[in-house]
Amino acid sequence: MTKLISIVSPCYNEEANIEELVARVRKVMTGLPYRYEHIVIDNCSTDSTVAKLRAMAAEDRNLKVIINSRNFGHIRSPHHAILQSSGDACIWIASDLQDPPEMIAEFVAKWEQGYKLVMAVKPVSRESKLTFAMRRAYYRFLSQISEIELVPNATGSGLYDRQLIQLLQKVDDPYPYFRGLIREFGFEAATVNFEQPRRMRGVSKNNLYTLYDIAMLGIVKHSKVPLRIMTIGGFVLSALCIVVTVLLVVAKLMFWNHFSVGIIPILISIFFFAAIQMIMIGFLGEYIAQIYVHLRKLPLVVEAERINF
């Protein structure tokens, strides 16, 4: 039997892009010798996205739709959709068209060469230069401290073999950092480079908080380095405080009438150590928050409706 390719596209308020996305995926898959299913998971859109998906699904049995009961966020919803795929390979393509669906053919070509993991990489992007520079700096930093080898500038889009999907289904992680999780299994990754275009229609659903959420998730999920820095830093700062204290006491004893410490150094020291403590407590809070999420054992999403499954 002809192999089945699953295409997964998460969306939220993408009424301006969803029809073109489905059409471009259909066009690419028509030119490939595979059966396919296109799973679009809607994160409880408030615009006409769902209505358009219903209309298209009524005419195209290859289009399968999952409608969430509420917005479950940008991490949980895509991961749930990937786990629902049934193809011999699963391809994740974003619904904002910034990761062009035409890359699907390149993903499949790499898969046919024997790669079980193919990742889209954007060495060049037409987004804000400052944003792109900050992303590159973050991924470079994460690669340095991570316990696994990450793929720099990977967007998340790519192809994942059925064997990899089955491993993901065994992982009980209610809030995964997907780009890191798929590297935990040790499969060699092929890459497809592309120049990421600007978003043509609609607005990005990412904001400063969601970007911070993804950044911290990548750090606490795949590195213990911040915890080790806290411990080592505590020892170093303690030793430094002891040395400075001894020097001040000696200076005061030797130059009793002429040496005045004053209150300014004390205030600076208090604010400095308070800032260090707040940063450390913040990192500890991030790790504790991940433990809390795991202990709650909530489902990734709750589905309100399925179409064409």
Rank of each mutant, 00 (worst) to 15 (best):
residue 6 S to Q: 00
residue 17 N to W: 04
residue 17 N to A: 01
residue 18 I to C: 10
residue 19 E to T: 12
residue 22 V to D: 11
residue 24 R to N: 11
residue 25 V to Y: 09
residue 27 K to H: 11
residue 28 V to S: 15
residue 32 L to I: 06
residue 36 Y to S: 15
residue 37 E to C: 05
residue 43 N to W: 07
residue 45 S to L: 10
residue 45 S to F: 03
residue 46 T to D: 04
residue 48 S to V: 07
residue 49 T to Y: 09
residue 49 T to N: 14
residue 51 A to T: 12
residue 51 A to Y: 01
residue 51 A to V: 13
residue 54 R to K: 15
residue 56 M to W: 10
residue 57 A to N: 08
residue 57 A to L: 06
residue 58 A to S: 14
residue 59 E to L: 13
residue 62 N to R: 00
residue 64 K to C: 12
residue 68 N to W: 02
residue 70 R to G: 07
residue 71 N to E: 05
residue 73 G to T: 07
residue 74 H to E: 12
residue 78 P to C: 05
residue 82 I to T: 00
residue 86 S to Q: 06
residue 88 D to K: 14
residue 95 S to N: 13
residue 104 I to D: 02
residue 105 A to L: 01
residue 105 A to M: 05
residue 108 V to K: 05
residue 109 A to M: 02
residue 111 W to V: 09
residue 112 E to P: 04
residue 113 Q to K: 15
residue 116 K to L: 00
residue 117 L to Q: 14
residue 121 V to E: 07
residue 122 K to C: 12
residue 122 K to E: 15
residue 123 P to A: 09
residue 125 S to D: 01
residue 126 R to P: 01
residue 131 T to W: 11
residue 132 F to M: 08
residue 141 F to L: 03
residue 141 F to A: 02
residue 142 L to T: 00
residue 142 L to S: 03
residue 144 Q to V: 09
residue 146 S to P: 06
residue 148 I to G: 00
residue 150 L to H: 10
residue 150 L to W: 00
residue 151 V to A: 10
residue 151 V to I: 15
residue 153 N to G: 07
residue 159 L to D: 03
residue 160 Y to E: 06
residue 163 Q to K: 09
residue 165 I to L: 09
residue 166 Q to N: 13
residue 167 L to E: 15
residue 170 K to E: 08
residue 172 D to W: 07
residue 172 D to K: 14
residue 175 Y to P: 02
residue 176 P to Q: 08
residue 177 Y to Q: 04
residue 181 L to Y: 05
residue 181 L to K: 02
residue 184 E to G: 06
residue 189 A to R: 12
residue 191 T to Q: 09
residue 192 V to P: 07
residue 193 N to L: 07
residue 193 N to T: 01
residue 198 R to L: 14
residue 200 M to N: 04
residue 201 R to W: 13
residue 201 R to N: 03
residue 201 R to F: 13
residue 209 Y to C: 01
residue 209 Y to E: 10
residue 212 Y to M: 15
residue 213 D to C: 10
residue 213 D to A: 06
residue 218 G to R: 05
residue 220 V to W: 05
residue 223 S to Q: 00
residue 224 K to F: 02
residue 224 K to L: 04
residue 226 P to T: 02
residue 230 M to H: 08
residue 238 S to C: 14
residue 241 C to G: 00
residue 243 V to K: 12
residue 243 V to L: 12
residue 244 V to A: 14
residue 245 T to G: 15
residue 245 T to N: 01
residue 247 L to E: 12
residue 248 L to I: 14
residue 250 V to Y: 09
residue 256 W to Q: 13
residue 259 F to R: 11
residue 264 I to S: 03
residue 264 I to V: 15
residue 268 I to F: 14
residue 268 I to N: 02
residue 269 S to D: 06
residue 269 S to K: 07
residue 278 M to G: 10
residue 279 I to N: 13
residue 281 I to Q: 12
residue 283 F to Q: 06
residue 286 E to I: 04
residue 296 R to M: 13
residue 300 L to D: 05
residue 303 E to K: 00
residue 304 A to V: 06
residue 305 E to V: 09
residue 307 I to H: 06
residue 307 I to S: 04
